[in-house]
Design a protein around this nucleic acid. Structure first.
Lengths: 117, 117
DNA sequence: CACAAATATACCCACTAAGGTATATACGCT
DNA sequence: AGCGTATATACCTTAGTGGGTATATTTGTG
């Protein structure tokens, strides 16, 4: 059941934060490191997990791996990500992530170029 | 984070089916057994799990334990259960559960009296 | 009180996952 | 080719979970 795989991805805080951030646009691993303040290996492994279940896609852009939400996501995923956004409102940690995301965006780092394609 | 606990509850098929059924009203363990076609111990353990995380409540009514969704559920749970109902549309197993639920309801078994209070 | 029905719990086993350390791979630059 | 940065993977350890079997607990009934 695809829905189950989605829920399994959602039952980890780091992955919730990753998906929440990806709703705003593609990001590379090092930016996740900065925003989430987590070691590279942790970020990388969670991204691999999400990728394995099809919740995110990845493409290389020079030496960076750019992760995104899938372009044509199945209905369940779409509903769940929407629900996640709603639920997350009251949790400060997600807001803080967004703040750090803004800082990065303003700095004009590689993601920018990559996201624009 | 309460949201995480909810997601952890949702990442098991049996628990999804239980919560889906409880949306229709309170049920006792033996009815879950009948509807889910699972051994008593499995049902009981999943219900204990859900209860431990606060996703369901239980009260004794004679020799039956009646499980329900909490009366005043936190926002996240409410949103998640709503989302679950939406996602579940395309999965036959949940529809089949509802069918068996109807059969039980019509038979006028203890849940009836219990649910009416 | 003995017994049956309904439910919960204890214990065991297998599997998954999460975190950490170390190492490998890929790419860009000189 | 050698080096640095970015990223992935292998391996280890630990914790949580799910399924099964057996047993305990609670309640109702004769």
């Amino acid at each position: 059941m695809k829905l189950l795989q989605i829920y399994r991805c959602l039952c980890d805080e780091t992955r919730l934060r990753i998906l929440h951030l990806l709703k705003r646009g593609p990001l590379c691993v090092c930016h996740f490191q900065t925003i989430l303040k987590l070691p590279q290996v942790a970020v990388s492994k969670h991204l691999a997990y999400l990728r394995g279940k099809g919740l995110v896609t990845a493409t290389r852009r020079q030496q960076w791996m750019i992760y995104s939400l899938p372009e044509k996501a199945p209905v369940e995923l779409d509903l769940q990500l929407r629900c996640l956004q709603d639920c997350v409102q009251s949790y400060p940690i997600f807001r803080e992530d967004l703040k750090r995301l803004q800082n990065i965006r303003c700095a004009g780092e590689p993601v920018q170029r990559a996201a624009i394609k």
